[in-house]
Amino acid sequence: MTLDLDICHRQGSFTLEARIHSEGRLTALFGQSGAGKTTIINAIGGLIRPSQGRIVVNGRVLVDTQSGIFVPKHKRHIGTVFQEGRLFPHLNVRQNLLFGRWFTPRRERVADFSAIVDLLGIGHLLDRNPATLSGGEKQRVAIGRALLTDPQLLLMDEPLASLDEARKSEIYPYIERLRDEGNVPIVLVSHSVTEIARLATSIVILSDGRVTAAGPAEDILRQTNLFPQTGPAETGALIETHVLHHEEAFGLTVLQTRAGTLTVPLLDLAPGAPLRVRLRARDIILSLQPPEGLSALNVLPGKVSSIGEPDGSSVDVMLDCGGDSLVARVTRKSVERLGLRAGLPVHAIIKSIAFDREAVGRAPTEET
Rank of each mutant, 00 (worst) to 15 (best):
R210S: 15
L3I: 03
T2V: 14
R276T: 06
I41H: 07
S314I: 14
K37A: 14
E181L: 14
P72H: 14
F14L: 05
A200Q: 11
L255I: 13
G343T: 11
S314V: 15
N58I: 09
F227G: 13
L147E: 06
T257E: 05
L275C: 10
T65C: 06
R106P: 08
D150Y: 12
D316A: 08
E165R: 15
G323H: 05
I285E: 05
D324W: 10
G136S: 05
E218M: 10
E218P: 07
G308T: 04
I203C: 13
N92W: 00
L279W: 08
R210G: 12
P105F: 09
G53L: 09
D180L: 14
P216G: 02
V346H: 03
G209F: 03
R76T: 00
P151K: 01
V335S: 06
E292G: 08
G182S: 12
D157T: 03
T263R: 03
T201K: 04
R276G: 06
S22I: 06
T241P: 06
G144F: 01
P265Q: 06
D316P: 15
G322A: 06
S162N: 09
S190G: 04
L319W: 00
V93I: 11
A359G: 15
Y172H: 10
R49M: 11
Q66S: 07
P271E: 15
R140V: 12
R177Q: 09
A273I: 13
I41T: 11
P271I: 15
I186C: 07
L47E: 09
G323P: 09
D118F: 02
S325A: 10
G231A: 09
L126A: 05
K351M: 07
D157E: 14
V56R: 05
L133Q: 09
L29C: 09
P72I: 05
E247T: 08
L160Y: 06
F30D: 06
I284Q: 01
T27C: 02
L153I: 02
R107A: 11
L178N: 07
P50I: 03
D311W: 12
I40Q: 00
I41P: 02
M1V: 13
I175V: 01
R109C: 09
K37Q: 13
D324V: 13
G24D: 05
R101Y: 01
L148H: 11
I78M: 12
S134N: 14
S13E: 11
T27Y: 02
L3W: 03
E23G: 08
A237R: 01
D356R: 15
L279K: 10
T257H: 12
A233C: 08
H21D: 07
